[in-house]
Computed example of a mutant assay.
Amino acid sequence: MKKLSLLMALVLFSVAGAVAQIYNPVTWSVASKKLNNNEAVVFVKATIEQGWNIYGLQVPDGGPISTSFKFTPSKEYTLNGKVAAPAPKSKFEKLFNMDVPYYINEVTFQQKVKLTKGQTNVKGVVEFMACDKERCLPPEEYAFTVTIK
């Protein structure tokens, strides 16, 4: 009887594990380019799985979570302007009853920084929301660090 109960529990947990899926449709990478001794650009690239999207930097109120960046303050650098990105596509989403800006496949965001010393670590967090035709995932954060030499 114990063996039968153990076997049933094992099968139940195996089936439950096979049904549960963790979605991770967006992967991030970071790079930098030094423009001169006093300035650099930080590149934060999102690679988005087929069928999924993330939202633009300027989503109207009442819509999904905009993609946003928070850079850790430092004496080693200051931000030069705002985060730049290519123009997003736009579509009407019934769920939000509005047109929303979005990116598919991949997008590279850029932030210029003014450097105050030679080697600099730029740290930050990007908050984003990924959706497909069936669901939207809860907002996520990706923390990054890039070293500018």
Rank of each mutant, 00 (worst) to 15 (best):
S32L: 06
S32Q: 12
M1T: 09
E141H: 10
F92K: 14
Q21D: 02
V42C: 08
D61H: 11
F71M: 07
S32A: 15
Q111L: 09
W28I: 02
T27E: 03
L137Q: 02
E49S: 10
S14W: 00
L79S: 06
T147Y: 08
Q111V: 04
F109V: 01
P101M: 11
M98Q: 15
D99R: 07
T108E: 08
T78E: 06
Q111K: 12
W28S: 01
S90H: 04
N105Q: 09
V146E: 13
V42G: 08
A143F: 04
K133Q: 11
W52M: 00
P25Q: 02
V107W: 05
N97I: 10
E140S: 14
Q110H: 00
V42A: 06
E106Y: 00
T120D: 01
G118P: 05
L35N: 15
S66P: 12
K117P: 07
S74D: 09
S74V: 10
G62Q: 07
P86H: 03
C136W: 03
V11L: 08
I48T: 04
L6Y: 10
Q111R: 08
N24C: 03
K123S: 12
N105T: 11
K75L: 05
L12N: 01
S29V: 00
S68N: 10
E141C: 02
A16H: 03
T147G: 11
T120F: 04
G81K: 06
L79F: 00
N37G: 10
K123F: 05
L10T: 14
L35H: 12
K3G: 09
P73F: 05
Y77V: 10
L137C: 01
E93I: 10
